[in-house]
């Protein structure tokens, strides 16, 4: 079992919701999806590689027959899966500090959600509703979300320069190379294994 693979942490959270609240949450997610600037805080928390929320209505757990008993539940459930760089405490602290309003809007419909501020009861709640990951794979274990964003910026600039490098005079190339290095200088760096406390 490991919640960690390389530089990324897998968080799984499940919380119960009274079914009448589910349409409200669906509407909020609909607005969050379609009004892009509402996602700015989430995007600016640049240590999140992927995240998703999944609502499972109480009668929508997969039922395949073959003698599988039907679930008989009173609550709908909200699943949250996150893939983030850094530690659990850093993540929850940042969520609480930066996204508190957004998180409250999403989780206030879950039973006994204490609010994301103050952070202590919020952490206690997340710790209670989290379950651990049995297997976790990442295709780029040595890279963070920021590394990946930077790598694509370098790649685009590099492709542009490489395409025309041969056709320039040395003086023109020197200027183009200078522009290139100025453009990418904040995006250079080495990826590698995450630091591990021994």
């Amino acid at each position: 079992m490991s919640n960690i693979s390389g530089k990324v942490y897998a968080m799984n959270v499940v919380t119960p919701m009274r079914p009448w609240k589910t349409p409200i949450l669906r509407l909020l997610f609909f607005l969050l999806w379609h009004i892009k600037h509402l996602q700015n805080d989430l995007i600016n928390l640049s240590f999140i590689e992927f995240a998703r929320w999944v609502i499972i209505p109480r009668r929508s757990f997969p039922a395949l027959g073959h003698g599988q008993p039907h679930e008989n539940l009173q609550y709908d459930y909200l699943l949250f899966f996150s893939n983030f760089n850094g530690t659990w405490n850093q993540y929850i602290d940042a969520f609480s500090a930066v996204l508190s309003n957004g998180l409250n809007l999403i989780w206030r419909w879950s039973e006994k959600f204490p609010g994301s501020v103050p952070v202590t009861p919020f952490k206690e709640y997340i710790a209670r509703v989290q379950f651990d990951t049995d297997y976790y794979y990442t295709a780029y274990p040595n890279a963070t979300a920021n590394d990946l964003k930077s790598a694509h910026i370098v790649q685009t600039a590099f492709d542009t320069l490489a395409q025309r490098a041969s056709s320039l005079t040395p003086t023109q190339f020197a200027q183009a190379y200078l522009d290139f290095t100025l453009e990418i200088q904040a995006h250079l760096g080495e990826t590698g294994e995450a630091p591990v406390a021994c």
Binding site: F29, Q39, I48, F50, R52, I55, A145
Partner: peptide
């Protein structure tokens, strides 16, 4: 299950 909200950096 249908994902309700999916974020990718």
């Amino acid at each position: 299950l249908d994902t309700t909200f999916f974020f990718a950096a």
